[in-house]
Amino acid sequence: MRLLLMGPPGAGKGTQAAVISERFAVPAISTGDIFRANVAQQTALGVAAQTYMDAGEYVPDEITNAMVADRLAEGDCAGGFLLDGYPRTPQQVAELDEILALADVGLDAVVLLEADTDELVSRLLARAREQGRADDTEPVIRRRLEVYAAETGPLAADYAARDLLARVDGLGPVDEVTERILTVLTSVAAQRTATSAP
């Protein structure tokens, strides 16, 4: 399975990514993990990214794209992967299309976790209190959610047009949300098996 997991901050992507990757035996790849690994290993890309991060600037697409391409070229991704947090922009969608085309593979599904904004704000405020993040105020959180909606709305529409998008209600107990996602993906896996059968 080659999957993308999308969803606003606080929708529980990280939690669900871990379960899904285990269920389908594919690596869960988050851009945050890729960045940290490259910075820790002082790779050329990591050093370049660190320069932007230290300046409080957005890491350019070309660096992020190169890191993702390197990660997807690793052996454990040969049988599939779950990308969490990438792509975030139409330019990154185009780049991912190119990376997959070069490997002669395609995406099986894009899961979009959806949740009510006020519920997400409550969740993120609670998380900020637990983690002692005083700068995560309600206006800051609402702004992050607005930016997410503006950036990823076009991506969801693009993947929907390709008949890859599965919208899943991200609210409720973790295991219930997991069950909803697995129901969708099991159906996708069955369809893929049916179409690849001789």
Score class of each variant (00 low, 15 high):
residue 190 A to L: 15
residue 26 V to P: 00
residue 76 D to L: 00
residue 156 A to K: 09
residue 156 A to N: 10
residue 48 A to S: 12
residue 174 V to N: 08
residue 59 V to G: 03
residue 143 R to Y: 09
residue 182 L to K: 06
residue 28 A to G: 06
residue 195 T to I: 09
residue 64 T to C: 05
residue 22 E to A: 12
residue 106 G to L: 04
residue 17 A to E: 01
residue 27 P to I: 01
residue 161 A to D: 11
residue 140 V to S: 11
residue 183 T to H: 10
residue 107 L to C: 03
residue 189 A to H: 13
residue 82 L to K: 01
residue 117 T to P: 10
residue 34 I to Y: 01
residue 36 R to F: 03
residue 100 L to S: 02
residue 119 E to L: 11
residue 157 A to K: 07
residue 33 D to L: 02
residue 45 L to H: 07
residue 44 A to S: 09
residue 3 L to W: 05
residue 178 T to H: 11
residue 137 T to I: 05
residue 155 L to T: 08
residue 83 L to H: 10
residue 111 V to G: 00
residue 6 M to P: 00
residue 18 A to Y: 08
residue 98 E to R: 15
residue 46 G to Y: 12
residue 195 T to V: 10
residue 128 A to S: 14
residue 174 V to H: 09
residue 93 V to Q: 05
residue 132 G to R: 12
residue 140 V to C: 04
residue 110 V to P: 01
residue 26 V to Q: 00
residue 132 G to E: 07
residue 130 E to K: 10
residue 178 T to N: 13
residue 118 D to Y: 08
residue 194 A to Q: 12
residue 118 D to K: 12
residue 85 G to C: 08
residue 196 S to N: 13
residue 52 Y to K: 04
residue 168 V to W: 08
residue 58 Y to L: 15
residue 173 P to D: 12
residue 170 G to T: 06
residue 111 V to Y: 02
residue 119 E to A: 14
residue 80 G to T: 00
residue 126 A to F: 10
residue 115 A to T: 03
residue 88 R to N: 06
residue 37 A to C: 06
residue 51 T to C: 11
residue 52 Y to P: 02
residue 171 L to H: 13
